[in-house]
Design a protein around this nucleic acid. Sequence first.
DNA 1: GTCTATAATAGGATAGAC
DNA 2: GTCTATCCTATTATAGAC
Lengths: 211, 211
Amino acid sequence: MPVPLLSREELLERLSRTFRRYGYEGASMTRIAEASGLGKASLYHYFPEGKSQMARAVVQRTIEWFEANVFGPLESNHPPRQRIIAMLDTLHRYFEGGQLACLPALMAMSDDRALFPELLERFFTRWVSALGQTLTDSGLARDIAQRRAYDAVERIYGALILSRAFGSDHTFLAMSNELPDHLLAGAGRSTLWTTRVPRFPSSPMVPSRAG
Amino acid sequence: MPVPLLSREELLERLSRTFRRYGYEGASMTRIAEASGLGKASLYHYFPEGKSQMARAVVQRTIEWFEANVFGPLESNHPPRQRIIAMLDTLHRYFEGGQLACLPALMAMSDDRALFPELLERFFTRWVSALGQTLTDSGLARDIAQRRAYDAVERIYGALILSRAFGSDHTFLAMSNELPDHLLAGAGRSTLWTTRVPRFPSSPMVPSRAG
DNA sequence: GTCTATAATAGGATAGAC
DNA sequence: GTCTATCCTATTATAGAC
């Protein structure tokens, strides 16, 4: 009786956690099988092309998850400061206080970035774009907003690295406390964001599930 | 005639580049042997404990290299702004415009951080401390200086990740252009740094060799 | 100090039963 | 859809000649 032990969602979630812990090379089929609870052969049923296909699916799912839980909310019609704080809160949970990285960033740091360069680029480009929207909504000039959006993503990943090196989320939290003021410094009391038509009718400010 | 083909320095340099490209797991003995020009067995002559010993040596050497070329100069008696610019310039060359990461940061992003946690912590702690010295020398209060030092290291690594994801050092350079002003904002025209006794008699502002 | 050869293990991937 | 068993390659590591 061929009945799936896991939903595709649950399988991807477990694959994601394994890749995020060990990186692409470090995530062996044995580890993946153990973490997923499936045999190696079963994994090839879902991903005939093997490990690279699994990693690609995880990265794609990461983009989708961020779209729903980070990028979308950044473009909502909530007050800009609230959107930024929600992003940082969501990320803190996504990173599980520094216990887990994110696969696109992990891959970007090694030659593994050559596996799906277009996905990595899309992920970070989209993030900067969405955050840039938040900041222009706050009344900042477009070029300043864009520069600060890069700034923010840089600090988020740098803080993740430091938090992991120090074995504590203290650095990440300190960055989170500082960032909203820094990003919104000099922002006019523009009411643009209150009148702008939201792109996503009702984007959730709180994610359904961190994975 | 047992004559070393490589100096230990040159061997470590090649090991370093290999680990920085592929990460700890991805740097296989075969790749390391090819990159070093030595046979696998010869590598075990230098590192009887194998790969983990090689990685440890590379991380230790990274700390020493940064001490001489980054941390030391940050504590020199040059003007603070000049020290910061020199650091960013040195890093741009060390990262080879984004082509190579640094092993401590790479390891910090995965569970590999558990291999030598004390070395990773020391590396980043030392960096924040040295840069904090630069900023207190500029006249900033100690707590502000420390917070901005974290800020700087965060942005440097975040910019490295973005640069690598985008396949261009543009993001790193944009960050480099912005950082000095940001770090020194509000710094008094204190002359502390001109009168302070230098800890390192004549720290080089330009590194001897990036590796 | 370096090499070739090789052992022992772990890696990714597949066949075929159920 | 999942499994056990297996294949083949690549991996880490070692032995022993020079």
